[in-house]
Computed example of a mutant assay.
Amino acid sequence: MAGRTVLITGGTGGIGKATALGLARMGAHVAITGRDAARADDAAREIRSATGAHVDVFVADLSSQGEVRRLADEALLRLARIDVLVNNVGGYWSTRHRTVDGLERTLAVNHLAPFLLTDLLLARLEQRGQGRVVTVASHAHAQGRIDFEDLQGERSYSGARAYNQSKLANVLFTFELARRLDGSGVTANAVHPGVVSTSFGAEDPGRTQRLLVPVLRPLMKTPERGAATSIHVASAAQLDGVTGRYFSNSRPRRSSPSSRDQPAAARLWRVSAALVSS
């Protein structure tokens, strides 16, 4: 990865920071995003100290489309090249929250933010003809269903249902992006990190998370193990030109039947484009 630049969203902790550390150790110039400036600076110092790598920091709350657009503008200004975009940021909220744009938060952060950011950075990724887009999804996508009639949970909301839908959206987006980028040299793949011990969902945990996570935490992956698949898909030479795949434990896996529904992917793309149009 020497000489390559990787932008990782949500890179101040958990899987994102572990991904940044792993790629920096391979020689990459890494750039991380986070909502909190102090935490982002602390993460950058830790990565620099551990690896000696050059680390850029961008502060943005990706629940806001204005912040996503500002992040993209700043990244294009400060980063002469972007070889890999790792769409890592994500979250779980047990209760329904509205963003500053009036959108349901889970959909906004987990799906619309990477959808918009990828689009805004695409020309820079295409610049050298071999960019990579890696989107962190989850096996939870297999329990998801895209409810086009109630996409934002206005009629009925469940944190688990919203999360599973957003992870299915990640995979559908990845596969549709791969189709649209065919022949461009830019690849798009989705990854499942596993069940990882992080602060995921801590802002607004559901009853199941409050009761089960403390019991199951010793059995969960470390962030370093959880980041391994993202690092592999972002960097492996043997994956040059490999696109439209779903990876788990650093190996391609078959995703759910619903994730391979091309008409649904095309419809989701159209709906998402309308929701992020300025």
Rank of each mutant, 00 (worst) to 15 (best):
L219D: 13
V233N: 14
F175R: 02
A264R: 01
A228Q: 05
T9P: 05
D204E: 13
N110S: 01
A137F: 02
V89Q: 02
A160N: 14
G91R: 07
D61W: 04
Q262G: 07
R251N: 01
R270P: 02
S235W: 05
Q127W: 10
R207S: 11
G144H: 02
E149L: 15
Q143L: 13
L117G: 03
Y246L: 14
A265I: 09
T106K: 01
R260V: 08
L125T: 12
V109Q: 03
Q238R: 14
D147W: 03
R70H: 08
A265N: 05
T95I: 04
A80F: 00
V215F: 08
G226H: 04
S255D: 00
T99R: 02
A113D: 03
R35E: 06
E224F: 10
R179P: 05
L120K: 06
A228D: 08
A234E: 02
D101R: 05
R78L: 03
H232Y: 15
V213L: 14
Q65G: 11
A178D: 11
P223K: 11
N88W: 04
L268V: 11
Q262L: 14
A53S: 11
T208H: 12
N249P: 00
Q127L: 14
S258P: 10
Y246V: 08
H111A: 00
M220K: 09
G241Y: 00
A160P: 10
Y92P: 10
M220T: 14
L125N: 09
E46V: 11
T12Y: 04
L212D: 07
F200C: 09
A162L: 06
L211A: 15
T5D: 02
L181W: 03
L212S: 12
